[in-house]
């Protein structure tokens, strides 16, 4: 049994123009201690997936079906009080917008201290020291002063780091991090990613890292799940995915990112590979492959039949009619 098992997850929103199938039949596992990255363009359903794992997706307007099992227990049936206990104890969370998870009426120190006291049976004074230590770890200047401030007194970047300190302080079994470093500078991002790696090696936390930055994926994760239009289109180890991406969407993403060093030495400027067009409107019914309209390899069949997610090589899944399959693959 994996730590987290998501099965046939459906997240739908009723909108004026129809039902938005934000997530449409998503299944994946996260093993204890594992770092899984989820990538894909904005709107492909990454955040709503993470919110549903945390029990934070508002329903309505959302409608969730399928299963989300944490340590074998289906969280979709769990009571609100059980979810509240899980969050911040066994499941930590970091969002791009820190105010989503910070409590405005408690000081930063109280919020970090709370989870430290819960887990380590620390005294009030010890918890405060630990909170200061955590704030220093995440790079907040003058932590002795900041520990007694409220979230609104901190700048955006500092709130982000305070939230990370809170999430890390409870040594969670699973950390759900939704674009945790997107709003940060690269030098701070490097520090935060190091912190998260530390947490993994010291506490054995599993991490579900949602990001659109393929560089962050390559440096941080072990396995990657590529989402497009609410579906999983490819899944593989990080090494396999970057070496032999099998889905045209993944191939397109990898070619579209400018890479340090890649345009040096060229006489004329190099053109980036574009993925033409944009993601489809999910409130309209999709026929065939969701990527067909943008895909350079699409044939007639792609517009008609939705390609199944298949094993194309050991541990490497892709949903494309034309993704190459290794001979030995099941």
């Amino acid at each position: 049994m994996a730590l987290l098992e998501v099965r046939d997850l459906q997240i739908h929103f009723r909108t004026a123009t129809g039902v938005n199938r934000a997530v449409d039949g998503l299944s994946f596992d996260i093993e204890a201690g594992e770092a899984l990255a989820v990538v894909g363009e904005s709107g492909c359903g990454k955040s709503v997936t993470s919110m549903s794992i945390l029990g934070l997706l508002p329903t309505p307007p959302g409608k969730i079906a399928g299963q989300i099992r944490f340590r074998g227990q289906n969280l979709l049936n769990a009571s609100e009080s059980r979810m509240r206990k899980l969050r911040g104890a066994e499941i930590g969370m970091i969002f791009q917008e820190p105010m989503t998870s910070l409590n405005p009426v408690f000081t930063i120190g109280q919020q970090i201290g709370e989870s430290v006291r819960l887990h380590e049976k620390a005294s009030r004074a010890e918890a405060r020291d630990r909170a200061i230590e955590m704030l220093r770890l995440v790079g907040i200047p003058s932590p002795e002063r900041r520990v007694d401030e409220y979230p609104h007194q901190l700048s955006g970047g500092m709130r982000q780091r305070a939230m990370i300190a809170i999430a890390l302080a409870c040594n969670p079994a699973l950390l759900v991090a939704d674009e945790p470093t997107t709003a940060l500078d690269v030098t701070i991002q490097a520090q935060i990613l190091d912190l998260m790696q530390d947490l993994r090696s010291k506490v054995g936390s599993a991490v579900m890292l949602i990001t659109h930055d393929l560089g962050v994926v390559a440096e941080f994760a072990e396995r990657v799940l590529v989402m497009y239009a609410g579906r999983k289109v490819e899944e593989a180890t990080v090494r396999d995915l970057f070496r032999t991406p099998r889905h045209p969407y993944t191939q397109g993403l990898l070619k579209a990112v400018p890479r340090l060093g890649s345009s040096l030495g060229a006489e004329t400027s190099v053109r980036l590979a574009e993925i033409p067009g944009r993601v489809p409107d999910l409130s309209k019914p999709l026929r065939g492959c969701a990527f067909a309209d943008r895909c350079p390899r699409a044939q007639e069949v792609c517009h008609r039949i939705d390609p199944a997610l298949e094993t194309k090589a050991a541990g490497h899944l892709a949903a494309c009619h034309f993704a190459p399959r290794e001979v030995s693959a099941a």
């Binding site: 030098t187 990613l193 393929l214």
Partner: peptide, 14 residues
């Protein structure tokens, strides 16, 4: 130098 070295590279084998 520090800025450049902080940029995550989209290459797990780098």
């Amino acid at each position: 130098r520090a800025l450049l070295s902080a940029v995550p590279l989209p290459d797990p084998e780098a």
